[in-house]
Write a protein that binds this DNA or RNA. Structure first.
Length: 363
DNA sequence: CGCTGCGGGATTG
DNA sequence: CAATCCCGCAGCG
């Protein structure tokens, strides 16, 4: 890699931002810098008007990944890929998990999938879900631009996210698969007694609900990776197997019109007046301090209503320096639009879903 | 099934 | 005309 692997540990995040040479360009320039002394480590949570130059070898950069939920938007310029932020899905009841975290689900990138997602309910309290759209760029979603040029991949972010971070792609995937398995479970319990047995066995054997009912799903091989490379990187395909293995355990399970039960009565976009919007969450949006804790974030979920009780055991005791605490002081439930102005919310109706577990993005 | 990139088409200023 | 936004399509995992 081009990146100076030796650079000090703490540099990770700001390397690019402070190198003048790297900030002097704009993604739209006809010519971008060709002599880059040092490329950046992939940034999982780019925010504010930052720019980065990644090695064209960087897988995450190649895939234009981001832990923010970014969707492709056509700018009719095949050379510059533009993506805009979809915001974050929150609980309309503004509920908190047992360990005090808020629900920040990752909006599905695909429009259709997102609509479907909104018909579901909060994995924590079963309440309605709301999509808080991003309005961090002059009232519009934050945009990210990617441009592949020679041995580098230039990245530029425009706008500062005015909402909490959603789950990472990995967390969302994990939650999905778990949910699927779960659903299948409950729906076809009859033929699955056997399986249930297995499940029980499993939970008894090792996974204590309290902390890691399905820990395997989230343990990443990468753990071994040297911290140096580790930071910031998103999931690697190599990890996928982990997730699939889970489903692999319940091969015969099949979903039975589960989600069909949601009654979505009203789906409205609430367009708050915006202003009040930002504020509260920005705390979470450290401009540069990101990703470090990334993938390995501790996930708390309750497979069968297990009290995540003493969770914070310390899976990932905040690696990222700047961000002491993910959760923000939020008003007690009841109020939903705490950030009232945020963006537009889409609230949906509540449904009684049997599924329960879920993962919470901890930041 | 959902993510990702592509590109046509429509809209706006 | 450029910049956006909306939408469907196709490849892929």
């Amino acid at each position: 890699m081009l990146k100076g692997a030796d650079d000090s540990v703490m540099e990770q995040e700001d390397s690019a931002s402070r190198h003048g040479e790297m900030t002097s360009w704009d993604i739209n320039d006809i010519k971008l810098p060709q002599h880059v002394s040092q490329t950046d480590w992939f940034q999982e949570w780019p925010d504010s008007y930052v720019k980065h130059i990644y090695s064209s070898e960087d897988k995450n950069a190649q895939r234009h990944h981001s832990s923010w939920a970014m969707r492709n938007t056509n700018n009719h310029n095949s050379r510059i890929l533009k993506k805009s932020c979809l915001g974050v899905v929150v609980c309309g009841n503004n509920c908190s998990t047992l360990d005090g975290r808020k629900i920040y689900l990752r909006p599905a990138i695909c429009d259709k999938a997102r609509q479907k997602q909104q018909r579901k309910c909060c994995p924590n309290c079963n309440g309605p879900l709301q999509l808080l759209s991003c309005r961090g760029h002059g009232g519009y979603p934050v945009t990210n631009f990617w441009r592949h040029e020679g041995q580098f991949i230039f990245f530029q972010c425009k706008g500062a996210h005015d909402h909490p971070r959603p789950e990472t792609k990995l967390e969302a995937e994990a939650r999905r698969s778990i949910q699927k398995a779960k659903t299948a479970f409950s729906s076809s319990s009859l033929r699955l007694k056997r399986i249930q047995k297995i499940e029980v066995t499993l939970s008894l054997t090792g996974a204590m609900p309290t902390q890691e009912p399905l820990p395997l799903l989230l343990s990443y091989p990468d753990a071994h990776m040297p911290p140096a490379n580790f930071r910031g990187h998103l999931s690697k395909s190599s990890q996928e197997p982990t997730l699939s293995s889970c489903s692999g355990q319940l091969p015969f399970l099949r979903r039975a019109g589960e989600d069909g039960q949601c009654t979505h009565l009203s789906t409205q976009h609430v367009l708050p007046m915006a202003e009040g919007g930002h504020g509260p969450f920005s705390s979470d949006v450290g401009p540069l301090g990101d990703g470090s804790c990334g993938t390995e974030s501790p996930l708390a979920f309750g497979p069968c209503v297990p009290p995540p009780a003493a969770p914070q055991g310390g899976p990932c005791p905040m690696v990222r320096g700047a961000q002491p605490q993910p959760q923000l002081p939020l008003p007690p439930r009841g109020r939903e639009g705490h950030r009232g102005g945020g963006g537009h919310h889409v609230r949906l109706n509540y449904c009684n879903n049997d599924v329960f577990f879920n993962l919470y993005p901890l930041r």
